[in-house]
Write a protein that binds this DNA or RNA. Structure first.
Length: 561
RNA sequence: GCACUCGUAGCUUAAUAGGAUAAAGCGUCGGCUUGCGGAGCCGAAGACUGUGAGUUCGAUUCUCACCGGGUGCACCA
């Protein structure tokens, strides 16, 4: 539909690059464009007059006439398009036949996208700080997959670096048995180290020495490290299971241990690095230099990320690599991307850093180093608990078996947290507040889930008393029309959200749709009402689109709740 | 100090290839159920979009300055 309008417009104006927008106000049509104003300005014409001329041409276009019920030119020079009811209704049919594929496409066919997300640090508890990367990253994977891209999700675990030196030092100097250390113990050791090192900076030399040993494959260091990694991974695995998150790969940083030398050699060959204060660095124009090798010869995060890019390009030939990593690493990624470009590995647009805002306290950052993090698991548990409480209070859940209620509590609790995160634009910081996190009403996952359950229930009841679907359709009333028009937008919203790396656009849309449905529901009788066949179709389509949307966000929608 | 980033109703947010009357949720106030799920629906009050300039027919969106918060700037990741 959109393409036909664009085609008609470019025939009528001779302009190739036309942007169609979706107006906020329903009175402004399904699509609108400002192209007449842009051209009028260039040609020194009167915008509204020119817009009217374009509309006159468009009205003679037979292809457009088939899909549009009205085209109008409006002050100061907008052109608005209204889709015909017939087209909208046939779209409704498409929803109920395509079901969970409605909104999908093959536009990404043949292209691979790598998404680097979650990436927690080994030996630290899975904190709330990693929620954003994990949830947004997973959703981006879902979205790209839905649009036909081949997606490679990679959890770039922080399992290498001087931080392990600190732990190795702690464990060996205190004569601890690594096998017996839980993740809480490990984090505590890490925090303690940082505290002690504040007073005793030479402790860092010890840590670096131990990391150096690890890189040199010294057996004691290696053994302890392996134990720590194992402990952490099983802990993370548990969290991912609760969250319903999975990866295609979990190549941590250590995976690139034997791949860094190649990158270093290439940089040296191309003379991009130089010695500085005993270390080896890469310099840039306009931004500070990055350390390729430390003064003791050990590698850094920068070195590893370069090796990672090289590996990913060689292994998967992606058209795009998306890093869903916090904004505090902006400079780092600018350095890494700039280097990759200097090396000629990429042209420029392939590497994208989606720098999400921080989850922080009102008065500052949560620092793991200082042990101020909040355990994600605690938050999830609390949320499920609150979900359960609401369910038990509601009488619609009566009759559900206990096991079923538990499942719903999970979907609601986890869904609420995920939705809370996803509904914020990725770039905005989130102030952590226990009360604000557990939103179970208004613009929230439970509201959408509830609406889906409602549609399910209506459809189920309707089936019982055989509907004659062929009843003569009357002209759509306002609420029906609004709903059909909103339903038709879903595929475009998905593309928009993907292109802008913004799952929050899907949240906005789903909430809008659910509100429109609930409004419709409150005003009109569905079962045994007029237009029953159509209204049931609307009900089914709404449920279907809401469910597809939530699935793309990584949120479950229970049949009943 | 330099760089990046954010500043929108009391609170939490939405809206940017510049668009039409700045959109919601929470909270407050007032309504809706002898009918399909009230975790719902309708309505009201509440905003000179941090400040001041500039570009434009048009600015929350672009530019500049200032104020305020956040983050980052060499051997953490």
């Amino acid at each position: 539909m959109k393409n036909q309008i664009l085609f008609g417009l470019s025939k009528a104006t001779g302009e190739k690059h036309i942007y169609l927008e979706t107006p906020e106000r329903e009175g402004h049509g399904d699509y609108s464009t400002n192209i007449a104003m842009i051209i009028a300005k260039k040609e020194d014409l009167k915008p509204i007059k020119y817009a009217r001329e374009v509309v006159a041409k468009l009205l003679k276009d037979n292809d457009l006439a088939k899909i549009v019920s009205k085209i109008e030119a409006v002050e100061p020079g907008f052109i608005n398009f209204f889709l015909s009811e017939k087209v909208l209704l046939s779209n409704l049919k498409a929803i109920t036949s395509e079901k969970d594929r409605y909104g999908s496409s093959q536009e990404g066919k043949g292209e691979t996208v790598v998404v680097d997300y979650s990436s927690p640090n080994i030996a630290k508890r899975f904190g709330i700080g990693h929620l954003r990367s994990t949830i947004i990253g997973q959703s981006l994977c879902n979205l790209y997959g839905f649009l036909g891209y081949k997606v490679v999700g990679d959890n770039h675990l922080g399992d290498w670096g001087t931080q392990f030196g600190t732990l190795l030092y702690q464990i060996t100097s205190k004569n601890l048995n690594a096998q017996e250390l839980s993740i809480d113990d490990l984090e505590e050791l890490y925090v303690k180290f940082n505290k002690e090192a504040d007073e005793n900076p030479e402790l860092w030399d010890e840590a670096r020495k131990w990391f150096r040993k690890l890189e040199e494959d010294e057996s004691e260091a290696r053994k302890i490290w392996e134990t720590i990694v194992k402990t952490s991974k099983s802990e993370f695995g548990r969290i991912y299971k609760i969250l319903g998150v999975s990866f295609d790969h979990e190549h941590g940083e250590s995976f690139y241990e034997d791949k860094m030398q190649e990158a270093i050699d290439e940089i040296r060959k191309k003379k991009l690095s130089k010695k500085s204060r005993e270390a080896e660095i890469v310099e840039f124009e306009g931004i500070p230099p990055a350390i390729l090798l430390k003064s003791d010869g050990a590698t850094t995060y920068f070195t590893r990320d370069l090796a990672t890019i090289k590996y990913r390009l060689g292994e998967w030939s992606p058209g795009k690599i998306i890093y869903e990593v916090g904004s505090e690493q902006k400079l780092h990624f600018r350095q890494v991307f700039a280097t990759a470009k200097l090396l000629g590995w990429i042209k420029g647009e392939e590497l994208v850093h989606i720098a999400h805002g921080l989850i922080r306290f009102k008065d500052g950052k949560m620092s793991t180093r200082k042990g101020q993090g909040i355990k994600l698991e605690e938050v999830l548990e609390e949320s499920i608990k609150r979900g359960r409480k609401v369910i038990n209070k509601s009488d619609t859940s009566r009759g559900l078996p206990k096991k079923e209620i538990e499942k719903v509590a999970n979907a609601v609790g986890i869904g609420a947290i995920k939705y809370f995160d996803l509904s914020h634009h990725y770039s905005s910081d989130i102030i952590f507040d226990w009360e604000k996190l557990f939103v179970l009403e208004g613009n929230s996952a439970p509201y959408l889930q509830y609406t889906i359950a409602r549609t399910n229930s209506i459809l189920q009841k309707a089936k019982k008393d055989l509907v004659e679907n062929n009843k003569e359709k009357q002209k759509l009333n306002n609420e029906e029309l609004l709903l059909v028009r909103t339903l038709a937008r879903f595929p475009e919203v998905i593309i928009d959200a993907t292109k802008n790396y913004s799952p929050n656009l899907i949240c906005n849309y789903l909430f809008d749709l659910a509100q429109k449905y609930n409004n419709f529901y409150n005003q009109h009788r569905i079962i045994e009402g007029e237009n029953e066949g159509l209204r049931l179709e609307l009900t089914e389509s709404t449920g279907c689109v809401l469910k597809n949307g939530l699935t793309l966000l990584g949120i479950e929608s229970p049949e009943k709740m």
